[in-house]
């Protein structure tokens, strides 16, 4: 499968990259590891005129930290995030999420920015041009039908990125830059919740850094991912959990976030009310799992039936919370 033609740009500093994005009026599409964008280009789902590789911009790579925060450059590879001892010790769920993406060669290539900014997916959309040619374009392809939910008025494609749920569980933020300005937003604000255009980042902006506050006190975290094969597969459901406790083992704060449960990561807001100030007990975990089940929005557009995936939300929510608790040292 060849690629459609495009022009190639390769800035070597962030300033050059931001200048190019402005100069090309948003038509210069960032290329990080290419592991998500190039397959979409091959299927003819997107046709960038200019691809701007970020590979040579060294200032966007690497993991740093100070007393309060962890900084991950947008071009840091998933392999580096997975293997970082700092992350394994203090941000287990993030390391687990990075280590669960695809397979080793893809983790050597794929980056955190590319992972966050990946498009939503659907069985009726992520197909070859030949396959799709027989059908009228659906909402996501600019048309006005949906094949997953006939009669619906919107797109239900699924956000299957692994990193976002784990990062949101840690209240992480992202730095977004364009020529002459920079803003920092909570990661959940990166997602529109709309399958048609799931990522809220302008054509002339770059995601340059992920910022994770270092939690205080005693805490644990975990990322659990449901898929058919233990390698290569995107999540069919996933859950990230963060849990901080006090010296009496009562919960000080908790955050549970679902992946592959809608067009954006889903925060299970009930978790805090259910567990805060209490001990981690099975009944409370079940209650959160039930709330997660209700929040998950699934339709028949991925590898397994929606009803089954939805049932798995309970199972993986429980596992994530239990593992987060057990990871507390």
């Amino acid at each position: 499968m060849r690629l459609p033609s495009f022009n190639y740009l390769e800035p070597i500093t962030l300033t050059d990259a931001l200048n190019l994005m402005e100069e090309y009026h948003g038509r210069a599409q960032p290329l990080a590891g290419g592991t998500e964008l190039l397959p979409r280009m091959k299927l003819g789902l997107t046709h960038p005129t200019y691809l701007m590789s970020l590979k040579e911009i060294h200032e966007l790579k690497g993991i740093k930290s100070n007393k309060n925060e962890l900084y991950i450059g947008g071009m840091t590879s998933l392999r580096e995030i997975f293997l970082s001892t700092l992350l394994q010790q203090k941000f287990l769920a993030i390391s687990e999420a990075a280590g669960s993406v695809a397979a080793p060669p893809l983790r050597n290539m794929g980056t955190i920015a590319g992972n966050l900014c990946q498009d939503t997916r659907c069985f009726f959309y992520n197909q070859s041009y030949f396959w799709r040619r027989g059908l009228k374009p659906c909402f996501k392809a600019g048309g006005n039908v949906c094949y997953a939910v006939p009669g619906s008025k919107k797109c239900f494609s699924v956000y299957q990125g692994d990193l976002a749920p784990a990062l949101i569980a840690f209240n992480a933020k992202v730095r977004i830059e364009k020529k002459g300005s920079s803003r920092i937003i909570p990661i959940e604000e990166l997602f529109s919740g709309k399958g048609e255009k799931p990522i809220v980042i302008a054509d002339d902006e770059l995601l340059t850094q992920v910022i994770v506050p270092i939690p205080e006190g005693i805490y644990g975290s975990s990322y659990r991912k449901f898929r058919l094969r233990n390698a290569l597969d995107y999540p069919l459901v996933s859950a990230a959990a963060f849990l901080a406790i006090d010296s009496e083992k009562k919960v000080k704060s908790v955050k549970v976030v679902l992946g592959a449960a809608g067009p954006a990561p889903v925060i299970v807001k009930e978790a805090e009310d259910i567990l805060k100030g209490k001990k981690v007990e099975e009944s409370a975990i079940n209650e959160i799992a039930e709330a997660a089940y209700k929040r998950a929005q699934m339709v028949d557009n991925l590898g397994l039936p929606a009803s089954y995936r939805k049932k798995m939300v309970r199972v993986f929510t429980k596992r994530a919370i239990e593992n987060a608790f057990n990871s507390i040292k």
């Binding site: 499968m1 190039l38 050597n108 290539m109």
Partner: peptide, 25 residues
């Protein structure tokens, strides 16, 4: 040709990468 099989693996600066998802440049 889309990252799912690993048959096109090469070593780039020592680490395995997929040559079907890399640009010549």
């Amino acid at each position: 040709g889309r990252g799912e099989c690993g048959s096109c693996t090469i070593l780039v600066d020592g680490s395995p990468k997929l040559s079907c998802l890399m640009l010549a440049a």
